[in-house]
Design a protein around this nucleic acid. Structure first.
Lengths: 178, 178
DNA sequence: CTGCCATTAGACCATATGGTCTAGACCAAA
DNA sequence: TTTGGTCTAGACCATATGGTCTAATGGCAG
C-alpha cells in the first residue's frame, strides 16, 4: 500500500519518455507504451487527443525538465565550474550504467527522427542556458561559450559511450575541456 | 548514353543509406527505398535476402566508407593536424548546407535505434583510427587522444547544428579544440 | 439517491509494412 | 536454338500499427 501511483497522464508520459529515449519515435509503438503502463487505449487518447505525437511532446518536455534538474543538482554544490562539469558527467555515467534507456541522451532520438525535430532545439538550448547561468554564478569569464562547449562535448562523448557500450567516454569528458 | 547507371545493388544501397541517414531505421520503409530507386521488390529481396536489416548493414558500410574518404581528403593535403581538422569540419558544413540527409551524422540514427546498434561501434572506431593515422603522419604528439577529441566534438557539434538547423556549430568546432 | 462528468475499457477499423512466391525477361554458354 | 542460371516484376499475404467509437465505471455535487 502507500503506492500513491502517479496520475494516469504522468504514468503514460514517463513510460513514453523512457521508450522514446531507448527506441526512438518510430521504434516505439503506442502499444508498447500501453503495455508498459498496463493502461487501455482509451486513457491514452483521452489524455493525449492527438495521439502519439502529442505523447512525444509531453515526453520530451518531461525528459528535458529532468535534465534541467540534473544540471542544477550537479553545479549547485560545486565550488567552481570545472568541478560542476565533472559532477555532471559523473551523474550521466551513473545513469548510463544503471538504466538501459540512459545509454543515449534523452532527446537525441527525437531530434533525429520523428515529427517534432523542430521542437527539440529549444529544449537543448534550455540546458545550455541553465548551464551558462551556473557558469556565471561560479564566476566563469565566458559562461555562454563554456556552456556550449560542455554540451557539445557531452553529447559527443555520450554517443561514443553508447557505441562502445561503456560509460568511460562520459567520465573522460571533463578532461577533454581543459 | 553514357548514363552508366550503377548496379541495382548499389542503387539500392545508396538510396537506403540516404534514407536511413535522414529518417532512421524504423522511419524508413522498404517501400521508400523502392520508390526512390524505382525498382521492384523482387530485386531488393534478391540482392538482400534478409531484407531491411541486410540493406541497413550494406548502407551503413557504404556510409562509413564515404566518411573514410572524406577524412582522407581533408587531412591528406593539410600541413598540420589542426588545419586538417578545420578542412574536415568545413566539408561537413558544406554537405550540411547542400543535402538534407547530411544534416545528421550518417550513422547516428542507426546507432540509436534499429537492430544493428552493435555493429556501428567498429565503423565509428574506424573513423577515429583513420584520423589518428593522419595525426601521426602530421606529427601530432598524441594521435589517439587527438583523434578521439576531434570526433567527439564533431559529433556533438553536428547534433547541435541539426537542432539549430544551422551549420555554424560545425564551423566553430575546430575552435573548440584549441 | 440521482444525475453528471471525467475517465477507463477494449472491440473494432483502415492502412502501412515487411516479407513470400510465382512468372517471366535477359543473357551467356553449349 | 536450346538450356540454365541470374535478375526483374509485382501480385499477394499476415501482421503490426495508429487511431476511432461506444459502452461501462466511478466519484462527486445537488
Amino acid at each position: 500500500m502507500a503506492d500513491a501511483q502517479p496520475s494516469t497522464r504522468l504514468r503514460l508520459t514517463m513510460a513514453a519518455a523512457q521508450l522514446f529515449q531507448e527506441k526512438g519515435y518510430h521504434g516505439t509503438s503506442v502499444a508498447d507504451v500501453l503495455a508498459m503502463t498496463s493502461l487501455p487505449k482509451g486513457s491514452l487518447y483521452h489524455h493525449f487527443p492527438d495521439g502519439k505525437a502529442d505523447l512525444a511532446r509531453a515526453a520530451a518536455k518531461l525528459a528535458s525538465d529532468v535534465m534541467l534538474d540534473i544540471v542544477t543538482a550537479a553545479y549547485e554544490p560545486a565550488e567552481d565550474f570545472t568541478q560542476g562539469t565533472t559532477r555532471l558527467a559523473e551523474k550521466f555515467a551513473r545513469l548510463f550504467e544503471r538504466h538501459a534507456h540512459w545509454r543515449a541522451c534523452p532527446v537525441q532520438t527525437l531530434l533525429l527522427e520523428g515529427p517534432m525535430e523542430a521542437e527539440m532545439a529549444p529544449l537543448l538550448q534550455g540546458w545550455i542556458d541553465a548551464t551558462a547561468t551556473q557558469a556565471t554564478r561560479l564566476g566563469h569569464p565566458e559562461p555562454d561559450t563554456a556552456a556550449t562547449r560542455v554540451w557539445v562535448t557531452l553529447i559527443g562523448c555520450w554517443t561514443l559511450a553508447d557505441a562502445q557500450k561503456d560509460p568511460a567516454p562520459l567520465r573522460a569528458m571533463p578532461g577533454l575541456l581543459l
